[in-house]
Lab assay of single mutants.
Amino acid sequence: NKFNKEMRNAYWEIALLPNLNNQQKRAFIRSLYDDPSQSANLLAEAKKLNDAQA
């Protein structure tokens, strides 16, 4: 399933972002599970926040 693969990839990328705190990571990951079709958008948002907090 395409969404499962995208979701799994996004999950690990988000989990490993160095500048997000655990609460932020959990919120993004919860959103991934709520709507796997938004994986790419959620990952992009997480990366933006990660960069902003660098």
Rank of each mutant, 00 (worst) to 15 (best):
F3L: 15
E6Y: 02
N9F: 12
E6W: 01
L17A: 13
A52H: 11
A10E: 01
L20M: 04
A54V: 10
L49P: 00
D35A: 10
N19K: 07
R30C: 11
Y11E: 11
F3M: 15
K25L: 04
A54I: 08
R26T: 14
Y33I: 13
P18T: 06
N1V: 04
N41D: 08
Q23G: 11
K47I: 05
P36T: 03
N50R: 01
E13N: 07
S31T: 06
K5C: 14
F3D: 15
A52C: 05
D34L: 12
D35S: 06
L20V: 06
K5S: 01
N50S: 10
A27V: 09
Q24A: 06
Q38D: 10
I29V: 14
L17K: 07
Q53D: 07
L16Q: 13
F28T: 03
I14L: 12
K47F: 04
E6N: 03
N41P: 03
Y33R: 03
A15W: 09
N1A: 02
F28H: 03
N50C: 03
L17P: 00
E6D: 05
L32E: 00
Y33Q: 06
Y11L: 14
Q38E: 05
W12F: 14
R30L: 09
L42M: 12
K47L: 05
S31A: 11
E6G: 02
A44K: 12
A46W: 01
E13H: 14
L16T: 08
S39M: 15
S31C: 08
P36E: 02
K2G: 15
L49V: 07
P36S: 04
Q53P: 09
Q38V: 08
Q38G: 11
Q24N: 03
E45K: 10
K25R: 07
A10D: 02
A10C: 03
R8E: 14
N19Q: 12
F3H: 15
N41S: 11
F3N: 15
L20K: 00
R26A: 11
F28K: 04
R26Y: 13
A46S: 08
I29A: 08
A52V: 07
L16A: 13
I29F: 10
Q38N: 12
Q24K: 04
F3P: 15
N9K: 15
D34N: 10
K2T: 02
A15P: 02
K2C: 15
A10T: 08
S39H: 12
N4Q: 13
Q23L: 12
W12D: 04
N21G: 07
M7Q: 05
Q24D: 07
M7L: 14
L49D: 03
L42H: 05
N21I: 09
L32V: 04
L43Q: 08
P36K: 03
Y33C: 13
A15K: 15
E45S: 09
E45D: 14
L16M: 07
K2L: 04
M7F: 11
L42Y: 06
L49I: 09
A40Q: 09
A46H: 00
D51K: 08
K47Q: 04
N21Y: 04
R30D: 12
N9W: 14
N9T: 14
A27W: 11
K2N: 15
N1Y: 00
A15L: 15
E6V: 04
A15S: 15
K5H: 02
K2D: 15
A40Y: 05
K2H: 14
N22L: 13
L20G: 00
L43E: 03
R30E: 10
A15I: 15
I14T: 01
S39L: 15
Q24W: 03
E13Y: 14
L49C: 06
Y33E: 04
N4F: 08
K47Y: 07
N50M: 01
N4T: 05
M7D: 02
L32I: 07
K25N: 01
F28W: 02
A54S: 12
I14D: 00
N9S: 10
F3Q: 15
R30W: 10
S39I: 14
S39P: 10
Q38Y: 10
A40W: 10
D34S: 05
I29D: 01
E6S: 03
S31K: 12
A15D: 05
K2I: 14
K47E: 03
L32C: 02
L20R: 00
P36Y: 07
Y11T: 07
L20D: 00
E45G: 06
L32K: 00
R8N: 05
A27N: 12
K47G: 03
N4V: 03
N19S: 06
P18D: 08
R30Q: 10
Q24H: 03
A52E: 08
K5W: 02
P18V: 06
L17G: 00
N1C: 12
P36M: 04
K48A: 12
D34A: 08
K25I: 03
E6A: 07
S31N: 12
K47M: 06
A44N: 11
A54P: 10
L43V: 11
K48W: 07
N19A: 04
A52S: 11
D35V: 10
A54H: 12
K48E: 13
L43H: 02
S39R: 15
K48N: 11
P36A: 04
E45Y: 05
K25V: 03
N41F: 09
W12G: 09
K48S: 09
A44L: 13
A15T: 14
R30Y: 12
K25P: 00
S37P: 09
K5N: 04
K48R: 09
L16W: 15
L42I: 12
N50V: 01
D35K: 08
E45R: 13
I14V: 05
Q38S: 15
K5F: 01
A10Q: 02
K5P: 08
N41R: 11
A10K: 02
I29P: 00
Q38R: 03
F28M: 07
N19L: 10
P18I: 04
L20I: 06
F3G: 15
Q23M: 13
A46M: 01
E45N: 13
Q24L: 05
A27Q: 10
A27M: 09
N22V: 10
R8I: 14
M7N: 01
W12R: 14
N21E: 10
N9G: 06
S31Y: 08
L49M: 09
A54G: 07
K48F: 09
K47S: 05
E13R: 13
P18Y: 04
A27C: 11
S39G: 13
F3V: 15
L49Q: 06
E13Q: 08
N19F: 08
N41Q: 09
L20N: 00
L32F: 03
R8Y: 15
S37G: 06
D34E: 06
K48M: 07
L42K: 05
L49T: 12
S39V: 14
Q24F: 02
N19Y: 11
W12T: 08
W12A: 07
I29L: 11
W12P: 00
S31E: 08
Q23V: 07
S37A: 14
Y11H: 08
L43G: 02
Q53W: 08
L32S: 01
N50W: 01
F28V: 09
R8V: 13
M7R: 01
I29S: 04
A46F: 02
L42N: 03
A44E: 05
L17M: 13
R8D: 04
E13F: 15
E6P: 02
Q53L: 08
Q53H: 06
L42A: 05
A40P: 09
L20T: 00
R8S: 06
L49S: 04
A40F: 06
N4K: 02
I29G: 05
L16I: 05
I29R: 03
N1W: 00
L32R: 00
A10P: 01
R26W: 14
M7T: 03
N4D: 15
A46K: 00
A15Y: 13
Q53I: 10
N50K: 01
A54D: 06
D35H: 04
L20Y: 00
A54M: 07
N1L: 03
A27R: 11
